[in-house]
Design a protein around this nucleic acid. Sequence first.
DNA 1: CCAAAAGTGTTGCTCGTACACCCATGA
DNA 2: TCATGGGTGTACGAGCAACACTTTTGG
Lengths: 243, 243
Amino acid sequence: MPPAAPTGRSMPTARLRIGGFHTGDPTSDESSPAVDVRVVFFALIGGRLVVALRNGDDQLCLPRGWPVSDESLDAAARRIAHDEIGLSDRYLEQLYTFSVEDEIDWTVVITYVGLVGSDASAGSRPGIEWVPAEPGVLCSEIDGRVIDYARTRLRAKLGYTTIALYLLPPAFTFRDLQSTYETVLDQPLDKRNFRRRLLATGMLERTEEVSRQGSHRPAALYRFRPTDDQERYLTPAWDEESS
Amino acid sequence: MPPAAPTGRSMPTARLRIGGFHTGDPTSDESSPAVDVRVVFFALIGGRLVVALRNGDDQLCLPRGWPVSDESLDAAARRIAHDEIGLSDRYLEQLYTFSVEDEIDWTVVITYVGLVGSDASAGSRPGIEWVPAEPGVLCSEIDGRVIDYARTRLRAKLGYTTIALYLLPPAFTFRDLQSTYETVLDQPLDKRNFRRRLLATGMLERTEEVSRQGSHRPAALYRFRPTDDQERYLTPAWDEESS
DNA sequence: CCAAAAGTGTTGCTCGTACACCCATGA
DNA sequence: TCATGGGTGTACGAGCAACACTTTTGG
């Protein structure tokens, strides 16, 4: 089980809450934590994996917000995606939940990972900064660890799912695809084996178009087959939309 | 993204909340959800995979509790393990977090999976019932889905980790081990291949003792090597112990 | 015609799977 | 000696990793 780790100096917000109550249990007036949702948005910019950070109290921090009533946690995460990144319809997955406490606040933090097409950085709201997703990102320690963990999971998941899709534009060359994998996995891959393996999955579809750039042979453009229902492995098929 | 899924016929909603607000926003006195932690405890009893349920309002439900201040979520889950199952030092892993809402309550539920040695059912508190972990368990619909999902994850994880360890007594025969896998995976396995594969992992250590029972050749007893630090795959290496 | 990236096959090895018989014991 | 489960080896196929040259284009 996850061994103890530092408690994290997170945000002094002033927020009190009274009454965590419970079905059947009448002890209804103890303090109970605030809840907030944070999202690690990844994108590929200039061949680097980057995350979206915004200004926090005294340093950069992950985009965040609170769920409102009548809103599932997933919906809250989607809303944050929309409000902060201007992001429409992308990949979003729950990561982990933990609690943070300091002298003032007690907060339960539900974290998500979101993937954004490389273009979307353009559409992101002002106040959002895209910084390289390497260990030691300038942000709170807690958020830094969340980012590291998110990256680890992204890497692991790239192996057995099609989520790379969400980091790429609708049409892409094999080189684009391979670079994406190489960037996220942080290791070089063999061109022929990569091509063979990806083609073997049947996820790819070659389009008529080609990408001409530079004085060399043009590259065929591919897209993902609309068979995109396998990236949900290890995520519950239920999540109640309250509303 | 987990597309909207069965909305769960739970909860018609009343409960209003205004304004999801953000860092820097001082609107601090709106309602915020209660938080509770539920644990799906699995054990093997009589060759069946069973879960621990306790009496809820009108039906069985998962063992649960709320985190108190100065207590991490993991610690809360451990406390529940101790209070409800009388469980000391076993495997516990976070599963998923979601929110539930009805006319009265708005709750964020953090779920865990716990694994219990087959013996431990004896030590469980009165009021706990161990029921077969099959789809359609008699409990609330929400809890039922949590159990199903927990089982799915357990099954998946058995493939690439050593968690089977926690469902077995300290010493066990190869048959015990194989039955455990077969029960959880719900499929028969080849004896020789199973043995070879498990030995190849190097996790097992043959003890001097044997298990004599029945009129046939006694079986060698094995135990897991104290190399038990790999079952944390896909779980963050950090989790703040507040306290 | 040159530079630069696109595209293409084969081979060896590893790992998983299928499969059947002898062994040790208690009754 | 018999019934019962414990314990063992081999052969095939699938899939992955390593590896180098030809093709097409723009300049």
